[in-house]
Design a protein around this nucleic acid. Structure first.
Lengths: 131, 131
DNA sequence: ATAGACCTTCCAACGATGGTAAGGTCAAGC
DNA sequence: GCTTGACCTTACCATCGTTGGAAGGTCTAT
């Protein structure tokens, strides 16, 4: 099948399939005489794997590791779990940080009258005039 | 004062000060005969405002709006509060999304033995073989 | 033969920041 | 006056993942 069909079947845009090939995340596709890329079912399977991992937010470089483990039928599940745990920890850290931002902004917004008067604790805080 | 001092006083790197000038977030600095940029206290104040807003995660384009409101002494606080509320809602959405990712990964990791055996629900899910 | 759907490569952009290179300026010390 | 070193200038390149476009080649059906 050509790249368009592989794209539709995997959920990965043709653009991104070429990109993944470019950065070596997937092997170079075989080509027809015309230069068109050709794919078979296992290729689509791998693309679906990548698509799902991206949906889960794994950065591409981590997907490289996941693919390596996926291809190794004898790998210990310990290694996969470790990668997942690392990523979970990163997510936790980012969530905590964003919750902090949200809380700070909420406090400022709560203290802001939000009426037609110009006084506003939000801008006041941003201006750093309280320090 | 020169850009280095303005940078140290505001917490914004010299690099970013030039960038902000480039994208029109701040007005073009006056120059010495040598071409060196010159700053005065109100400039530093504005840079601190930007710095704090970036710390709070405001994207630069939103800071543009905030600066406009900040410069308008007669603006109703309602407008500022509205901007903040929008950003808070975006934060909430992002937090919720990341929590979803984290929970999904946690469930998968919990179901993974994490031992030397190769079976692993994490890769199994990524492969989409359950669908 | 021609239309139109598909494919190819290459280039640019996004947002915010860091880095580097090649060069100009300025103040202090000798 | 000359050198040193800290500071400044512009102009690129890289990041990360993705999208868009341009200019052109290929295939299929009419």
């Amino acid at each position: 099948m050509q790249i368009g069909e592989a794209s539709a079947a995997s959920g990965v845009s043709a653009k991104m399939i070429r990109y993944y090939e470019d950065i070596g995340l997937i092997p170079s596709a075989t080509r027809k005489d015309s230069g068109y890329r050709l794919y078979v079912e296992p290729d689509v399977h791998r693309l679906r794997f990548i698509h799902r991992a991206r949906e889960l937010g794994f950065p591409v470089e981590r997907i490289r590791d996941l693919l390596r483990l996926w291809n190794d039928r004898k790998r210990p599940s310990r290694e996969v779990k470790k990668l997942a745990a690392q990523y979970i920890a990163e997510l936790e850290a980012q969530i905590t940080r964003m919750q902090g931002l949200r809380d700070t902004l909420k406090h400022l917004a709560d203290a802001c009258d939000g009426d037609s008067r110009p006084h506003c604790p939000i801008l006041h805080d941003l201006a750093g005039t309280h320090k």
